[in-house]
Amino acid sequence: MQFILGMNCGGFYKCATLISKQYSHFVISIIQFMKCLVLLAAPGLMSIFVVDDTSREQWKNVFFVLGIFLIISNLLFCFLVNDKPASFTKITKHKESYIQVPQESDKNGI
C-alpha cells in the first residue's frame, strides 16, 4: 500500500499538468504554495495535539489520523481523476473580445 501512495505523488503532478494544459505553471505553483502552507502549519498543529513528547499514545493517534486522511484522499484522487483538459483551458473567440483597430484610411479622415 505504501508504494501506491508513493506513486501517487508523481501521478498527482502529471494529472495537474494534463488537466490544466497551458495554465499548468500556475496550477503547479498553487499546489506548491498549498504544500508550503501545510508545512508551515504542521508544527503548530502538533503542539496542539501532542502535549508532551513522552507519550507514545499521543503520537500514535496523530499518525493514525494522518494515515487515514492520506488513504481517503488518495482513494478519492484515484476514483475522481481523469486526463481530460478542464473547461477553463478551452479558448473561445467572441466578437465582443476583439479590439477594433482603425485602418490607415480611418486615421486620415478619408
Rank of each mutant, 00 (worst) to 15 (best):
L18W: 08
L18A: 02
I19C: 05
S20C: 13
K21I: 00
K21R: 15
Q22P: 04
Q22D: 08
Q22S: 13
Y23R: 15
Y23N: 05
F26H: 14
F26A: 10
V27S: 11
V27P: 14
V27C: 02
I28F: 06
S29L: 10
S29K: 04
I30Q: 09
I30M: 07
I31G: 02
I31T: 04
Q32D: 15
Q32Y: 14
F33K: 10
M34E: 02
K35L: 11
C36K: 14
C36I: 11
C36S: 13
C36V: 02
L37G: 10
L37R: 13
V38H: 08
V38K: 14
V38W: 09
V38I: 05
L39Y: 14
L40S: 01
A41V: 03
A41E: 00
A42C: 09
P43A: 04
P43S: 01
P43C: 01
L45S: 05
L45R: 08
M46N: 14
S47C: 07
S47H: 10
S47I: 01
S47P: 06
S47Q: 09
I48Y: 04
I48S: 02
F49N: 04
F49L: 00
F49W: 04
F49K: 10
V50A: 09
V50E: 02
V51C: 10
V51H: 11
V51K: 13
D52T: 14
D52K: 15
D52C: 04
D53T: 04
D53L: 05
D53V: 09
T54R: 13
T54W: 07
S55L: 03
S55M: 06
S55K: 12
R56N: 01
R56A: 09
R56C: 05
E57I: 01
Q58H: 06
Q58C: 12
Q58W: 09
W59Y: 12
K60A: 10
K60W: 10
K60C: 09
N61M: 10
N61V: 12
V62P: 06
V62Y: 03
V62A: 07
V62K: 08
F64T: 12
